[in-house]
């Protein structure tokens, strides 16, 4: 009964949307990479790097939006590294992705230790504050949930529309999708598969980094080790769950986040005290695996995902 009551509180849905926001950025980023034919397992590390870069920029005195841009640029640099190795050189996307995750994570921790050698608890920044959209935020239940969020959350939702529009309504989007489905056809049109794929991986990685920055600049106000905590891997599952479509991926991210917000609240009820808290923490990961099983039969995987393209090769 308590669970049903929780579902009808605005704070629950507000939390769900907040938890979904970093996932939306990173899932969109991964989706763009995969649509162009590149699996980007660097996502976990790129989120860590983005979380640190954005936060560190603001801590050193830049504005919040500059911080977001710094995170984006750092993410794009790791995307450039990833795509240089996987696209023109055609190296294993699994190995390079894991290597990029390790490199991004370790260099972030290294930079953190160098920048703040003596701190025991990480310093805080003045993070993004909720912005109440006039009129809309007065709607009962929906208002506080959807329209009293931080600007980055609004940006995440807007981006879903933008990415969807670009992918399905513009020549650029067509080229990206074709690079992931039939790269030979793209090359036959006189376009460079290499350039399209590298561009897609860089933009996608930039979005992943913004997803990471959301954690340090909007959800919390400081940087912790292990703060990304597998969110990147969950986003890879969300891309599959969303059948490589931005709209469905958004739905998946919100559902997932609602579930996550629910488990946090159920932990505090009488039912929750009976069950070890680890069971609740496991739930998001188990849910992701179930989502993958459920969708695996229907998934429309981009045909050339993980297939390197070498011009002139048949």
């Amino acid at each position: 009964m308590e669970i049903i009551e929780i579902l009808f509180t605005a704070s629950f849905w507000a939390a769900a949307i907040r938890i979904a926001s970093p996932l939306i950025f990173a899932t969109l980023g991964e989706l763009i990479c995969e649509r162009a034919g590149v699996l980007n397992l660097g996502i976990e590390g790129i989120m860590v790097a983005g979380a640190f870069a954005g936060w560190m920029a603001v801590y050193s005195g830049t504005g919040l939006w500059t911080g977001v841009c710094v995170a984006m640029v750092v993410g794009m640099l790791f995307g450039l590294l990833h795509s240089t190795l996987t696209v023109p050189f055609g190296l294993s996307q699994h190995v390079v992705g894991l290597g990029v995750t390790l490199l991004a994570t370790s260099s972030t921790y290294y930079a953190y230790r160098l920048a703040l050698p003596e701190v025991t608890s990480p310093p805080k920044i003045e993070a993004f504050q909720p912005f109440e959209i006039p009129i809309l935020s007065d709607i009962p239940l929906l208002g506080p949930a959807l329209f009293s969020q931080t600007p980055l959350t609004y940006l995440a939702f807007v981006l879903v529309g933008v990415v969807s529009m670009v992918l399905y309504r513009t020549p650029l989007g067509l080229a990206v999708r074709a690079a992931g489905e039939n790269p030979a056809a793209v090359a036959a049109q006189g376009l460079s598969v290499t350039a399209i794929r590298m561009g897609a991986v860089m933009v996608g990685s930039g979005l992943m980094a913004v997803g990471g920055a959301f954690l340090t600049m909007s959800a919390f106000d400081s940087f912790f080790f292990e703060m990304v905590n597998g969110r990147g891997w969950i986003c890879i599952a969300l891309v599959v769950f969303g059948s490589w479509r931005p709209g469905k991926a958004l739905l998946g991210a919100v559902l997932f986040a609602a579930f996550d917000a629910l488990q946090i609240r159920v932990q505090q009820t009488s039912l929750g005290t009976l069950i070890p808290y680890q069971i609740f923490l496991m739930m998001p990961y188990i849910l992701s695996i179930f989502a993958l099983i459920l969708m695996s039969r229907r998934a429309e995987v981009p045909a050339a995902l993980m297939v390197p393209f070498n011009k002139g090769e048949r």
Partner: peptide, 11 residues
């Protein structure tokens, strides 16, 4: 089921 093992083993 054809579920990608990279994600499942990671999770």
């Amino acid at each position: 089921f054809g579920v990608d093992e990279v994600v499942t083993t990671l999770l």
